[in-house]
Design a protein around this nucleic acid. Structure first.
Length: 498
RNA sequence: GGCCCGUUCGUCUAGCGGUUUAGGACACCGCCCUCUCAAGGCGGAGGUCACCGGUUCGAAUCCGGUACGGGCUACCA
């Protein structure tokens, strides 16, 4: 593929990428994916990852949102080399603190003949737009104020007439082209781009101005961002041309849609990263899933951890088409990470979940680590979400259990005779086990005779005992459960049903 | 309206002119394992590669058009 003549070759410069969220809400899935791609690309290329807060919209930007975005990134395990908290040589990293650099950029643009004042009022503009659109042409600004002489312009400004600064696109400018890492060669006819506003009448910069000025100032080499910015790219390239600054590489990521192919919204489920943490997802699972939503390592590998991402991520395998978010696959991935997790770590997470559910104390792991490490493999294998843990293991932490509806209907009430016999036999067997030998191995050996003794198939013979111990027809393995519950509690629960 | 972009199993994707009877993963179905539930093993179903036309000895792959979907078209980002 040939390099576009317009795109400055940045291969020689060290890679510098940035994630520049505007804090108008919490970090949503699309933003998180963009952050992951930027971060992984920086790590894989040995470059720098910069976090910049694009807070030029005073109406909607809040400190709470900034804090939330930062904590969401930290939770995901994304670290930045420069940005809020960390600082860096190209700061400040908040656009609201970079006003001086926009003023300077505007001066450069003026000096180069790339900017002019526009005194058209919003009302006039809206009317013009209306007419232009009705005629069927482009609805952009008609350039009415371009012809104002410097004297006229200055005079009107001095007189206190409000104005904005617009970019003055050269009349003879050809098509604006760039080579997008995802979309390939992309070209926009010059006349499809109007003299857009750079600086508002209140002196604040617009996004298309501030963002690219910052990118240039921060020596960004690759702009990796959402697809919704493709149409903004030629505008920003024009600003760079007016500034005489190098043009970075671009990579525009497709959007993330809901399972139904429509724009992802609350209706589909959670859209904010924080919510996934609350719902029991692991950051590594979300990162893996998001990374694969629009990118592939080799087309075969599905489980890709952060380390692999940090070494193998590239811009060559990014999909063009929008992806639908599949909660089921994410959940599966989560269960994979849960199962592969170090037992110690799982145990700690488990205790945390239990403590949060009010079932144990936060330091309970320290009180009986062996007990928890015995429990861990039984639970981790069955957990899809961290929030599954408390309900699954609850029976081990409460004093007594109440058989649930299914247990009553499908077991207790279905064959009371069998239930009674099974429980009685089980009680005898268990009472005969020496308290010192109360472990899965001995229990299992002793219980092996139960089906024969009660004259029922194993699945039917053990079910009453399961209901007695766990209060449900579905539970962790029986013998292990009894070991963990302890001899006294186990026998007490059997007695309670007799 | 204008300008851009996209379209491969239900979903995420591999595929860059012959190696493809289109590969993998999730979900789904069946069997095995089994004290329940999981996990695991084995197997299965599922795609006329949006449509139409062209280029070519040969196209999911290249070109054009159509349809559908999306983005931008703000003194939002």
């Amino acid at each position: 593929m040939s390099t576009d003549p317009v795109t400055t070759d940045t291969a020689a410069r060290p890679v510098r990428v940035r994630f520049a969220p505007s804090p108008t809400g919490s970090l949503h899935l699309g933003g998180a994916r963009t952050a992951i791609y930027n971060w992984a690309f920086a790590r894989a290329t040995g470059g720098s990852f910069i976090l910049r807060i694009d807070d030029t919209d005073p109406e909607r930007s809040t400190p709470e949102n900034i804090a939330q975005i930062i904590s969401a990134l930290e939770w995901l395990g994304i670290d930045w080399d420069e940005g809020p908290v960390r600082g860096g040589d190209y700061g400040p990293y908040f656009q609201t603190e970079r006003a001086a650099s926009y003023v300077q950029a505007l001066e450069t643009l003026q000096a180069n003949g790339w900017a002019y004042r526009c005194f058209c009022t919003p009302v006039e503009l809206a009317a013009k737009r209306e007419i232009a659109r009705a005629k069927g042409g482009s609805a952009g600004y008609d350039g009415a104020c371009r012809t104002l002489s410097e004297e006229q312009s200055q005079a009107r400004a001095n007189a206190g007439e409000p104005f904005v600064w617009r970019l003055k696109i050269p009349v003879d400018h050809g098509a604006i082209a760039f080579n997008d890492a995802v979309c390939g060669h992309t070209e926009f006819p010059a006349d499809s781009i109007d003299d857009f506003v750079l600086v508002r009448s209140d002196g604040s910069p617009t996004y298309n101005f501030a963002s690219i000025v910052d990118d240039a100032a921060m020596a960004i080499t690759h702009v990796i961002r959402g697809n919704d910015h493709v149409s903004n790219t030629p505008k920003q390239i024009l600003v760079l041309e007016g500034l005489g600054a190098p043009i970075p590489n671009f990579a525009h990521l497709s959007m993330i849609n809901g399972p139904d192919g429509k724009k992802l919204s609350k209706r589909h489920g959670s859209t904010g990263v924080e919510e996934y943490a609350d719902e029991g997802y692991l950051p590594e699972a979300l990162m893996n899933y998001l990374a694969l939503l629009g990118w592939s390592l080799d087309g075969e590998t599905t489980l890709i951890d952060a380390d692999t991402l940090k070494t193998h991520f590239n811009l060559e395998h990014i999909a063009k088409r929008p992806a639908n978010f599949d909660f089921t696959k994410l959940t599966w991935m989560n269960s994979e990470y849960l199962r592969a997790m170090e037992p110690e770590r799982f145990a700690h997470l488990m205790v945390e979940c239990l403590a949060r559910a009010g079932l144990v104390a936060y330091d309970d792991f320290e009180q009986r680590p062996d007990w928890y490490l015995t429990l861990t493999p039984l639970v981790s294998e069955r957990t899809k979400l961290l929030t599954d843990i408390a309900p699954m293991t609850r029976f081990l932490f409460v004093d007594t259990v109440e058989p649930d509806e299914t247990a009553r209907k499908k077991v207790l009430e279905k064959d009371p005779t069998l239930v009674e016999r099974a429980l009685q036999v089980a009680q005898e067997i268990l009472e005969n086990i020496d308290p010192e030998n109360w472990d899965t191995e001995h229990i299992e050996a002793a219980m092996a005779d139960l089906p024969d003794s009660v004259g029922a198939k194993p699945r039917l013979a053990y079910q009453p005992l399961r209901v007695a111990v766990a209060g449900s027809t579905v539970s962790l393995p029986l013998n292990e459960s009894m070991e963990l519950l302890g001899r006294e509690k186990t026998l007490a629960r059997i007695r309670a049903l007799l």
